[in-house]
Design a protein around this nucleic acid. Structure first.
Lengths: 151, 151
DNA sequence: GCCCTGATGTTCAAATCTGAACAACCAGTA
DNA sequence: TACTGGTTGTTCAGATTTGAACATCAGGGC
């Protein structure tokens, strides 16, 4: 049993601020997307990732890792998006097991319509409130912990 | 219709890194707490807030705002924690409608037992990977957006 | 005292998420 | 070829979350 390493004031303040802010922002984003387009945040992230991907398509597992949700959650959400006509499933040519999620034209149009309002929220509460230095510091810091979490 | 203000490379990098990291860390924390104590992250946060509060008790609404969950989610979780004997409900003396969530001795012991392992995760992936400067920068930046989100 | 606006906490239905179990498939090896 | 270990995506049951609706109470103005 090793000694417990508590957090000092600086560390605790940083952790608490990070935690509260991420939760509050998540809620605000969810609210905006729901009102503007009837989308959840994971659904929106799926559309974004697919739009950025070559051929506007991605394997299910790869997509799940990118969006950071479980495989079953992605299966569920892709089914929802398929019903809405924003995404289609295609069989993977190189792997018989594989499934490709493909962004439809409607999906692309939906994303283009929704993105501005979404970015407005990201700006209003986060990006526009941080200095250039703060943005850069956050990027390097977050990437360092992201890398550790993905290994 | 105002012009859409897209995010430039620096802004996008910061936002993406923040988003992915917060989700990954959330998942890792959830996993650790579940394995170590059968607790969810919101449940753990409830215990922490109550332990810090005067008299180890808090009003439901105040607690919900602190933990950043809906009122109904808190009602559900307090019921769960009550079944586990970690929290009790008490009527509020000053307000007939009010309900006080009170941390029991068992709840306090549970928290003391679980906290070290939890903090180990927070350290391993976030706090110990950031410099003092980065921690302080993050605190001021996060607090600024938190304040905006809470108004 | 009485009314009105707002706050408080719960209940409810619906949606979503997770992990485990599963069937199908791939790749490498004997 | 047949086997073995690992990957892929889905299904399923259970747990959790949210927002709306609701009954109740507080505080102030008349």
């Amino acid at each position: 049993m090793t000694q417990t390493r508590w957090l000092d004031a600086t560390e605790m303040a940083a952790w608490r601020a990070f935690l509260s802010t991420s939760h509050l922002l998540e809620r605000r984003i969810e609210e905006q997307l729901k009102a503007a387009a009837g989308l959840t945040h994971p659904q929106y992230e799926i559309l974004v990732r697919l739009a950025d991907a070559p051929g506007r398509q991605m394997r299910m597992t790869e997509l799940a890792k990118g969006v950071v949700v479980s495989k079953s959650a992605l299966t569920y959400q892709i089914t929802q998006l398929e019903k809405a006509g924003l995404v289609e499933r295609a069989t993977c040519p190189s792997d018989e097991r594989g499934v490709l999620a493909v962004l439809t034209d409607d999906g692309m149009r939906c994303l283009e319509r929704v993105a501005p309002g979404h970015l407005e929220v990201v700006r209003a509460y986060l990006v526009d409130r941080l200095t250039r230095d703060e943005l850069e510091t956050m990027t390097t810091a977050m990437r360092r912990t992201e890398q550790a979490l993905r290994r």
